[in-house]
């Protein structure tokens, strides 16, 4: 916007536009700097309890009635609990790559969901991992348990490793 004033003797133009160029310069420096230092990863956390030493497992206080546990074995997962028959699931892909395949994930989720439906008061599960079990596999198993309704997962080392 410019205001043009016309006097009888003089004629001058007053420029009322904001001087934005210095601010622009600051922004142009600031934005790449912020973009370079920004972190766009969405980091979340899984809150949990520390693993119990296998040797001291028998001295732990009273456990919930179901004692649900998912054991990671060499080539299989074994789901155990008080009053439920042990169920075994293949672990070929995860043993090789550390990542569960979709079919095993679906079967495990289904089995866990059935147990949760039968015992809605229990939300605890122990994931009993082997020494060489990969961290990603453990996190995936915890995800499956949580998605099935078992929100309180604890990690434990297997007896063979103790």
């Amino acid at each position: 916007m410019s205001v043009r004033s016309r006097g009888r003797s003089s004629r001058h133009v007053v420029d009322c536009d904001l001087e934005l160029r210095p601010l622009m310069n600051v922004f142009i420096v600031l934005i790449p700097m912020l973009l370079m230092s920004a972190v766009f990863m969405e980091i979340r956390v899984i809150e949990m309890s520390a693993p119990q030493a296998a040797a001291t497992a028998s001295t732990q206080p009273e456990q919930p009635a179901l004692h649900l546990a998912l054991h990671v074995r060499g080539d299989s997962y074994v789901l155990t609990g008080t009053g439920i028959p042990a169920a075994e699931f293949g672990r070929d892909a995860a043993a090789r790559t550390g990542r569960l395949d979709a079919a095993t994930s679906a079967r495990l989720t289904e089995a866990l969901a059935r147990i949760v439906a039968a015992h809605p008061e229990d939300h605890e599960i122990r994931i009993v991992a082997e020494s060489r079990t990969r961290y990603q596999e453990i996190v995936t198993l915890m995800d499956l348990a949580r998605n099935a309704g078992l929100s309180d997962a604890a990690l434990e080392g297997s007896m063979e490793d103790a």
Binding site: A50, P51, A53, G98, A129, E130, S131, R132, T133, R134, Y135, Q136, I138, V139, L155, G157, D161
Partner: peptide
């Protein structure tokens, strides 16, 4: 933890 670390390392750290 790195996704590829083994449980034996994680267990010691947590303990």
């Amino acid at each position: 933890g790195d996704s590829d670390i083994e449980f034996r390392v994680l267990r010691k750290v947590m303990y």
